[in-house]
Amino acid sequence: METVWSLVIDVIVTGGVGFALWAADRRHGKYGIMLPVALGVVIACLAWIVAVAAGTGYLTGLIWVPWIVPMVLGVAVSVAVTKLVERRREKRDVADLTRVLRG
């Protein structure tokens, strides 16, 4: 039962960081508010499932794995994918605007 709390904490932390990431980004109009939140939470849940299935939540020296690794992976994927989507969306928007303005 102690390991389930690590999932709850992972979801809360990665979701909160996702919202903070969106709010801190000046160009957050290029993507939706839920993109960094959903990515962080999904990746954190998947990493938690893998870590617990591997048995690290019950081994004495590895009890930190289901707590820390999902949070770090969730935040890292959130930042990386958000920046990737932002760049691609900006290029596509500029290309579409140029095409419209040329006639």
Score class of each variant (00 low, 15 high):
76 A>T: 04
83 K>H: 13
78 S>P: 11
72 V>K: 09
70 P>R: 02
30 K>H: 14
7 L>R: 02
77 V>W: 08
7 L>P: 00
83 K>G: 10
9 I>L: 12
54 A>S: 08
100 V>M: 07
30 K>W: 14
44 A>M: 01
70 P>L: 01
12 I>F: 02
20 A>R: 02
73 L>E: 00
100 V>R: 13
34 M>C: 06
63 I>L: 10
53 A>C: 11
3 T>A: 14
86 E>Q: 07
94 V>T: 11
16 G>L: 07
19 F>N: 09
14 T>C: 00
24 A>M: 14
25 D>Q: 10
25 D>T: 13
81 V>A: 12
33 I>E: 08
14 T>E: 00
33 I>P: 11
52 V>H: 02
103 G>S: 09
103 G>R: 14
20 A>T: 08
45 C>F: 09
15 G>N: 00
4 V>Q: 07
39 L>Y: 09
16 G>W: 04
5 W>V: 08
96 D>K: 14
67 W>R: 15
19 F>H: 05
77 V>N: 07
41 V>L: 11
78 S>K: 03
64 W>A: 13
79 V>Y: 10
34 M>D: 15
83 K>N: 11
49 I>Y: 10
49 I>L: 15
16 G>S: 05
80 A>L: 10
28 H>T: 11
59 L>V: 11
87 R>Y: 10
43 I>R: 04
16 G>F: 00
98 T>R: 11
70 P>A: 00
32 G>Y: 11
27 R>E: 13
66 P>R: 02
76 A>F: 03
23 A>H: 08
18 G>H: 01
11 V>I: 14
102 R>S: 11
68 I>G: 01
18 G>P: 09
81 V>Y: 10
63 I>C: 09
50 V>K: 01
97 L>S: 10
30 K>V: 12
53 A>P: 05
8 V>W: 02
40 G>T: 03
27 R>K: 15
87 R>G: 04
46 L>I: 15
78 S>E: 04
21 L>S: 03
11 V>L: 07
70 P>E: 04
33 I>V: 15
55 G>I: 02
55 G>A: 02
7 L>Y: 00
33 I>S: 07
4 V>L: 09
17 V>C: 12
70 P>W: 01
8 V>T: 06
30 K>I: 13
101 L>V: 13
44 A>D: 00
69 V>H: 06
40 G>D: 02
53 A>V: 13
63 I>H: 14
60 T>P: 08
88 R>N: 07
72 V>H: 04
34 M>F: 14
37 V>L: 06
11 V>Y: 04
81 V>M: 10
14 T>K: 00
4 V>H: 04
74 G>M: 05
53 A>T: 10
31 Y>T: 07
57 G>Q: 00
22 W>T: 09
44 A>N: 03
92 R>N: 03
29 G>I: 06
87 R>K: 06
68 I>K: 06
37 V>S: 04
26 R>K: 15
